[in-house]
Amino acid sequence: MNTTAQIPQWTGVAASLLLVVLAAALVVYQRLGVARDLLWAAARAFVQLLAVGALLTILFAHAGLWGSALWVIGMVVLSGFVAAGRAKGLPRARVAAWIAVGLGTAATLGLLLLLRVIKAEPIVVVPVGGMVVSAAMSATALTMRAIARTATEQRAAIEARLSLGMSGVDAFSPYLREGVRTALIPAIDTTKVVGLIALPGAMTGLILAGVSPFDAIRYQIVVMYMLLAAAALSSVVVARLTTSALFDSADRLVRFTHQS
């Protein structure tokens, strides 16, 4: 792929920083009280991206495919902490999140690699893996949060079903469906309006790199389907795992305090 995009020099980066300084000045002038947050976010993004850039350079040059796979596994582990943090108090949340994000990532990324839709090279596996893990993590977190909230708010209704002799899984099934549906709305909506409201990241990147728009959309379609599948798979898996953890061996709804 020949890159025809004009990549900004560091002077260009410094010039773009001027925009942030201008925005901060405007915020101070208006006394909106968010100037410190704005500057902190800009500084943090700079340092983070610098670190990631350096790390990816080393990774692409030296780590090979197994190193890339380890990198993706690391992202899955980290995303489990983040997703479980969205459903504090939920029993066995972290393990459920790791399994769900791991399965969602492994299934989608693995299939695309197996079918040779994407290349088994670090320069592809790492960024594409990152997108998949991110989509799976987001759906997992939303599903767990919806389930934790429902189990707390609908305790009386769930126990009314249990009192009729239903199993925990059956008693929770109407709420489980709702939880998965709610969690997948962002992924479905994003897929529905792709290209209409904003050009998606992968496609924009390819076009900037000089790829023809018609070639770029093929890549984007693969990415969108991959993200949708990862989100759906992770959501369904975490919903099942979390539901099982909500009930003890005698199908009693366990007590926990949900903190979102």
Binding site: A156, A157, E159, A160, L162, S163, L164, G165, M166, S167, D251
Partner: peptide, 15 residues
Amino acid sequence: HQLRRKVSLVGQRPV
């Protein structure tokens, strides 16, 4: 599950 079908509980506020 058999026990709860034989011994059914109705809560304070009807759900």
